[in-house]
Amino acid sequence: MSNKFKLITDGLVKNNPTFVLLLGMCPTLATTTSAINGLSMGLATLFVLVLSNMAISAIAPVVPDKVHIPVYIVVIATFVTLLQFLMQAYTPAMYETLGLFIPLIVVNCIVLGRAEAFANKHGVLESACDGLGVGLGFTCSLTVLGLVREILGSGSVFGFNFIGGNDGMLAFVMAPGAFLCLGYLMVLFNKYLKKN
């Protein structure tokens, strides 16, 4: 039990995909213009990560070595497409905001990375925990990054504006701000959290 709990907390801190492993930078930089966008992107990736980790750990023993990458990609793409259908049907507004970055989860290196590095060597339950941990780590990082950028860039928190219609520092909503915030958050994360 404690082993599985550790898998989850590892994903959050020690193996944090954004601040420690530096994986999946493309959606990280592009979708975190606000906290809610970051959160949604994180949850979408979490969904795919848990399901693909479980499916891949289940089928790994029978997959021949030479075709394992194509098989994994097909499995991951299936879950991403499934997610796409569901989002289009039930959260169309969020689907539009995240747009291209949902189909791009297929090539997100976190997902294939966890399949290669963890899921194909471990059991279904452990892989699910690993997916959950890494997915939560990704979700938290994206939410925090989105939150910081939203506060600085638009002066609001989760869409609630606290500077009364004035503009924030616009650069933080745009690409340069994404790099700046990510860089500084990475420094803080590695200095204070990872040490313990």
């Binding site: 023993p61 029978v62 997959v63 075709v67 394992h68």
Partner: peptide, 21 residues
């Protein structure tokens, strides 16, 4: 870990995965 590759099982596994998906 992964099974040893030969033509039959490669075609079979990849084909079945695609079909199922």
């Amino acid at each position: 870990m992964a099974a040893k590759s030969n033509l039959t099982n490669m075609v079979l596994v990849l084909g079945l995965t695609c079909l199922l998906c």
